[in-house]
């Protein structure tokens, strides 16, 4: 079935309004897109984080699909248990087989950091489940602390922009690549603004014969310090600057799904958010270059994996020219 928004409006997405996520938060937008794209009956496992505390506050729930949250680090393992239960209940004839999809939503903290081992174990065991990382580059639920997904130079409450250290000193981990190295059937990067790409990926993931992982770019207006109406614009910028390329790894084959060329320098992205303001006040000019160099390196490595020629950035070219 092709994805047409008008057709999708006829469906119930299974997620109600009245939740407590901030105005302009991307997390619920991603949840709705994922649930709408699923063909099967979902069972959801949540990790502790903004989404969970805002959508399942007793006595209420925003969810109209079955859901479990048990802790911060173990949502992939909840899904392992549910999938195992499903298989055994069917095998014992205690439940009729029916098409179901076990979906996990975990933040970048839950995915990159504290739940890394739980996720890796579940991937290696090959449970059939879909893991969606809501990547807002920080521990937002506990007040915007850095995570392994936070990028270099970003202000967070645990990497404040000080006189000595200008925000987070480290780059970020390539979690999508790490998951892909597990050799699971389907891995992809998506972004909240590109609903069609995201929903197409959810559908591919649902058909995978094993674990599927989607790392979804999820801007957080509160933590990134921008106006709530810019959530989609910032997501788009991340793709255009190649900070967050849209791609998939389907049965080991890398493929770019988004723009094939980087169309903007990273500075455009940095300028869009308050969390980078200190970098722009020329205190640390070196950091911006370092960020650009990291983006370029990762972009070219990805292009190579996709069988494409490396691409040089205008800035790198300029620098090379002026050095002559």
């Amino acid at each position: 079935m092709t994805l047409k928004l008008r057709d999708l409006t006829l469906l119930d997405d299974g997620f109600e309004s009245g939740h407590g996520l901030c105005a302009g938060c991307s997390e619920s937008v991603i949840v709705r897109q994922v649930l709408l794209a699923l063909a099967n009956e979902p069972v959801v496992a949540l990790a502790t984080g903004c989404l969970e505390v805002s959508s399942t506050r007793f006595p209420d729930t925003a969810w109209k699909v079955p859901l479990i949250h048990s802790a911060f680090e173990n949502a992939a393992t909840s899904a392992s248990g549910i999938e195992a239960a499903y298989k055994a209940l069917v095998r014992k004839g205690r439940m009729a087989e029916r098409p179901m999809t076990f979906v996990v939503f975990g933040g970048d903290g839950a995915t990159y950091d504290i739940g890394f081992q739980w996720l890796s174990g579940a991937l290696e065991r090959g449970h059939k489940f879909m893991y969606i990382c809501l990547n807002n580059e920080g521990y937002m639920n506990t007040g915007i602390q850095r995570s392994g997904a936070t990028m270099l130079g970003a202000w967070t409450t645990t990497t404040p922009a000080g006189d000595l250290v200008p925000g987070k000193p480290q780059w970020r981990k390539d979690m999508t690549g790490i998951v892909a190295s597990h050799g699971v059937p389907y891995v992809a990067q998506a972004a909240v603004h590109h609903w069609k790409d995201l929903m197409t990926k959810v559908r591919t993931a649902e058909k995978a014969e094993g674990p599927a992982f989607l790392n979804v770019f999820a801007p957080c207006d509160r933590g990134w310090r921008y106006e709530p109406e810019d959530t989609m614009a910032i997501s788009r910028l991340a793709v255009e600057t190649a900070l967050w390329p849209l791609y998939e790894v389907d049965d080991g084959k890398y493929k770019l799904n988004g723009p094939r060329h980087k169309t903007r320098p990273i500075i455009d992205y940095l300028e869009s958010q308050g969390r980078f303001r200190h970098l722009l006040k020329d205190k640390e000019p070196g950091v911006i270059e370092e960020i650009q160099a990291n983006v370029d390196r990762e972009w070219n490595r990805l292009r190579e994996r996709c069988g494409l020629e490396p691409e040089v950035t205008p800035e790198t070219t300029e620098a090379a020219v002026s050095a002559d």
Partner: peptide
């Protein structure tokens, strides 16, 4: 036996998997 035996990667995961399975309606 027709049991699903999950060879988890840690004890925390062992109980976490049981929690998921039990909430799913299974004896874990």
């Amino acid at each position: 036996v027709r049991t699903e035996y999950i060879n988890v990667e840690s004890e925390h995961a062992a109980l976490s998997a049981c929690v998921g399975a039990s909430a799913a309606g299974a004896r874990a």
